[in-house]
């Protein structure tokens, strides 16, 4: 969420949110169709570069935000490395079998998960939810009743988190038995939290209609979200650099360049 950390306002903030979202979705689809490790690494570097130099956050903040990624990388790749199919066995112990193919595939998956995570973070760090939904209404014709519902719900997030902590305390005071199993405990927390949330949401919807909100009626917009030259730069950045990464990975592969999918059956 934007409010967790504050960074400088950069050109990435000024990109049209709908365009940013669609571009990132496009990159996602591209990424799951990359099956060669060299290109995958190149692709990840392109995204990482934008993350480090484009988001306007200090290196310390970025480092803090990136810590979970190491974890993402390791955990995503490990099960494929340890249990994936492959012919060229490098190491074998009990059920664990590391083959060259599974090792490469595991590393490939790690990079893929990493680039997804960073793409998502780039978006989240440089996009105000309100602007996103105004843009979705204006550029992608999202019906206002969905857009304003989302904005209202996002406003409730800090209120819900605070309430969640109060409920935990309140139940502790009541002497909730520690021997209850986990699901029972979660349910006891979830009931007050959900019932309060339902009531709140309902009341907000009623008050919105009391303020003459009608989804199907024409409306004006307080924020008009358009396009600028930065949008073009944004698109070019990916086109050019990913193209470059593709060429380089084909001509100067520094890692084994085979299809990571298990093809020989």
């Amino acid at each position: 969420m934007n409010s967790l950390f504050s960074g400088k306002y950069t050109w990435l903030h000024s990109i049209n949110p709908s365009l940013k979202l669609l571009t990132i979705l496009g990159l996602f689809i591209l990424a799951i169709n990359i099956h060669y490790l060299n290109f995958m690494v190149g692709f990840s570097c392109v995204i990482l570069t934008l993350f480090i130099f484009g988001t306007g956050y200090s290196y310390k903040q970025l480092l803090l935000l990136s810590l979970p990624f190491l974890f993402v990388f390791l955990s995503t790749s490990s099960s494929m490395i340890l249990f994936g199919k492959g012919e060229t066995i490098l190491f074998k112990w009990a059920y664990i079998q590391i083959s060259e193919e599974s090792l490469i595939r595991g590393i490939h998956l790690g990079f893929r998960a990493l680039s997804f995570a960073i793409l998502g973070l780039i978006f989240a760090l440089t996009t105000k939810p309100v602007m996103l939904f105004y843009s979705l209404m204006q550029q992608l014709k999202l019906p206002p009743k969905f857009a304003y519902s989302f904005m209202a719900a996002i406003r409730l997030i800090p209120i819900m988190i605070e309430e969640y902590q109060i409920i935990i305390n309140a139940q502790r005071v009541r002497g909730i038995e520690q021997k209850n199993h986990l699901l029972k405990k979660i349910e006891r927390l979830a009931i007050p939290l959900l019932s309060q949330s339902i009531r709140r949401a309902y009341r907000i919807a009623v008050s919105m209609e009391a303020k003459r909100f009608q989804s199907n009626r024409k409306r004006t917009f307080y924020y008009e979200v358009g396009f600028s030259r930065n949008d073009l730069i944004f698109l070019c950045y990916f086109f050019v650099l990913i193209g470059l990464a593709y060429l380089l990975s084909n001509h100067y592969p520094f890692l084994p360049n085979t299809d990571v999918r298990y093809l020989s059956d």
Binding site: S149, I198, R200
Partner: peptide
Amino acid sequence: LKLTDILVTIVISIAFGIL
């Protein structure tokens, strides 16, 4: 779906999102 349905659905889901 009415506005109330949509808002309630989204808020419940965001509560799960927090979880």
